[in-house]
Structure formats: C-alpha cells, structure tokens
Design a protein around this nucleic acid. Structure first.
Length: 126
DNA sequence: CAGTTGACAGTCC
DNA sequence: GGGACTGCCAACT
C-alpha cells in the first residue's frame, strides 16, 4: 500500500457526512409530521441546531425543508408562505389563528401532534 | 491555518 | 408573558 496518500478519499470539496445525516433524517420524516432543528441535531448526536440549518441550506435543496421547523413549532421564516402550502398539502396539524392580528404569522404548527421522532414510529404520542 | 457567519435553542431577567 | 443574551457546531472566506 502506498500508505497515507494525499487523500485516499475523493472527498472533493465538502464532506456530506453531516449533511448526509441531516438529509437522511429529514427524508425519514413522514408526511403530516415535522421535526425541530434541535431534534434533528439530537438524532445526529450533536446540538448543532444551527449547523443543521446551515448544512440543510446547501443540501436542503433536495430535501423537504418544510418538514423541519424551529423550536416551538414556529414556521421557517425564509419561506413560511411556501411551507404553509406544503403543510396543508401533507395534512400537517396546524393551528390557525382565526383572530387576525397576532404576530406576523397567522398560523402555527401543532408541534404537540406534528412532532415526530425517527427513533419511534409512534405517530400517536397523545 | 484561523476568523467570521449562520435556515437555531435554551436559559435568564 | 414577552424580550434579550449566550452557547453550539459546521461551513464559508
């Protein structure tokens, strides 16, 4: 063997190890369910909630980013309007605020029921 | 090689 | 009950 070469692995550019892990988890999220950045990071064994979003920003182009929401069930601010269409299409439990005038978003994600975990298939925690 | 940024979270007041 | 700061880890320049 040649021993340690300049790079036996063609890890050209970036190593999608973390990104692949994030993509893997996000893709495992079934329709009608969502996960928070912290949950995804926790599944990866890291608390890099930010890194999840950052990596997803690069690999997320091919991922259901709308299934990944912030803590508290707040919708993604980058494309909240776009995500709303996906949530309604997927049947994600949303909390519509009939009363107008309440923050920027008039709707919220019912994380109570939409929160899903890849380690458990219990879609009925309640 | 090191510094800065960033699709966040959790805790303190 | 709401607002602000700090901490975390990975990618970018």
């Amino acid at each position: 063997m040649d021993g340690a070469e300049s790079g036996p692995e063609p890890d050209s550019g970036a190593e999608p190890d973390f990104g692949a892990a994030v993509a893997e988890v996000v893709r495992l999220i079934p329709a009608g369910h969502v996960m928070t950045y912290g949950d995804v990071a926790a599944v990866l064994g890291s608390r890099a909630a930010r890194a999840v979003g950052t990596v997803m920003a690069r690999e997320g182009a091919d991922l259901p980013w709308w299934r990944v929401v912030r803590a508290g069930g707040l919708p993604p601010v980058w494309h909240e309007a776009r995500a709303l269409e996906h949530y309604r299409a997927e049947g994600t439990p949303l909390v519509e605020r009939s009363s107008a005038a309440s923050g920027s978003s008039a709707w919220r994600i019912d994380v109570r029921r939409a929160r899903w975990s890849p380690a458990t298939d219990a879609d009925d925690p309640f």
